[in-house]
């Protein structure tokens, strides 16, 4: 197996063009597990940890694919609360020091913790190849179980997000109180100025997925101009619609029925918290 160590992005893209079978590796928290268990034996690894362009984020919230979760929590938690919440649930402190959002996107596991947040927050994935770069909305990025929209010669370069326009929440069910893979997860982002809501589910369908009907329901039901406490019936209906957006399976981590149930509960609760934050914010401004 060849171990390729580019020093610049241009070099990395050239190598990837030359060796499309090279598997990119950043923190190694997914790739190394697969290698160690012999589930995958790629002819080459493309080590991205020395590529400076991937290790930084800028004020425009273009976050390099190699920025680890620990830094997202520490450095971006104020502007991207939803992403920070999801990042906090990833593995152990050691894993959060190594693992990256770029890696989450590259693996495209339906259980990846940051996906629902990226979907609910209108993230755009910047990918590049020696041929040039392109921007892929998160909604178009996940194609199937562990399949994404990357071409063979492309690398994930960055994720583009906007500072939270309103309250954001992320919630994840696992059968342990820490360091646990998602049984199912849910993210919600409020966009008060646009009078709409982003909502997405994780680990409850072949891909992470937006709950569009649920979003539309809230866009029509919520009064963003003068937010008042929500009726239980609205929260409930929202929960039902989120649940309906999922098509989970029965597996060793949980039953499909449980996942649908849990998604409804998480959707209801997170909407309540986010909406309350909006009300509290209005009060604070008034």
């Amino acid at each position: 197996m060849d171990f390729l160590r580019p020093e610049t992005l241009a070099e990395a893209l050239a190598l990837k063009a030359e060796r499309p079978d090279a598997v990119p590796i950043a923190g190694g928290t997914d790739v190394m597990v697969e290698l160690n268990f012999d589930h995958r034996r790629p002819p080459a690894l493309l080590d991205l940890t020395r590529v400076p362009e991937l290790q930084r984020w800028d004020e425009g919230l273009r976050i390099g694919a190699g920025v680890p979760y620990a830094r997202i929590i520490a450095e971006l938690g104020d502007r991207l609360p939803g992403l920070a919440m999801a990042s906090r649930t990833v593995g152990s402190p050691q894993i959060r020091n190594r693992g990256t959002v770029g890696g989450n996107l590259g693996a495209a596991s339906p259980a990846g913790d940051t996906h629902p947040v990226l979907l609910a927050s209108d993230a755009v994935v910047e990918v590049a190849s020696a041929r040039g770069s392109r921007m892929i909305p998160a909604t178009e990025f996940y194609l199937g179980v562990k399949r994404n929209a990357l071409e063979q010669d492309e690398l994930i370069v960055a994720v583009h997000l906007k500072p939270a326009a309103g309250p954001q929440q992320f919630s994840k069910v696992g059968t342990r109180n820490a360091m646990v893979i998602a049984v199912c997860s849910f993210a919600i982002s409020l966009f008060p100025a646009e009078k709409r809501v982003g909502a997405a589910v994780g680990s409850a369908a072949p891909t992470p997925r937006r709950a569009r009907e649920a979003e539309e329901f809230l866009a029509s039901e919520l009064d963003f101009s003068s937010p008042k406490p929500l009726l239980d019936s609205v929260k409930r209906e929202f929960g039902e619609l989120v649940s309906r957006a999922a098509s989970p399976i029965d597996d060793v981590r949980g039953s499909a029925a449980y996942r649908k149930h849990a998604l409804a509960v998480m959707a209801r609760r997170t909407l309540g918290w986010a909406w309350q934050e909006l009300i509290d914010g209005e009060r604070a401004c008034a």
Binding site: M85, T89, S171, K172, G174, N177, A178, V265, R269, W273
Partner: peptide, 13 residues
């Protein structure tokens, strides 16, 4: 709380 930083409850349920 149950779920810890997975943020599943703020006391509800």
């Amino acid at each position: 709380l149950p779920g810890g930083v997975s943020n599943t409850t703020h006391g509800e349920g």
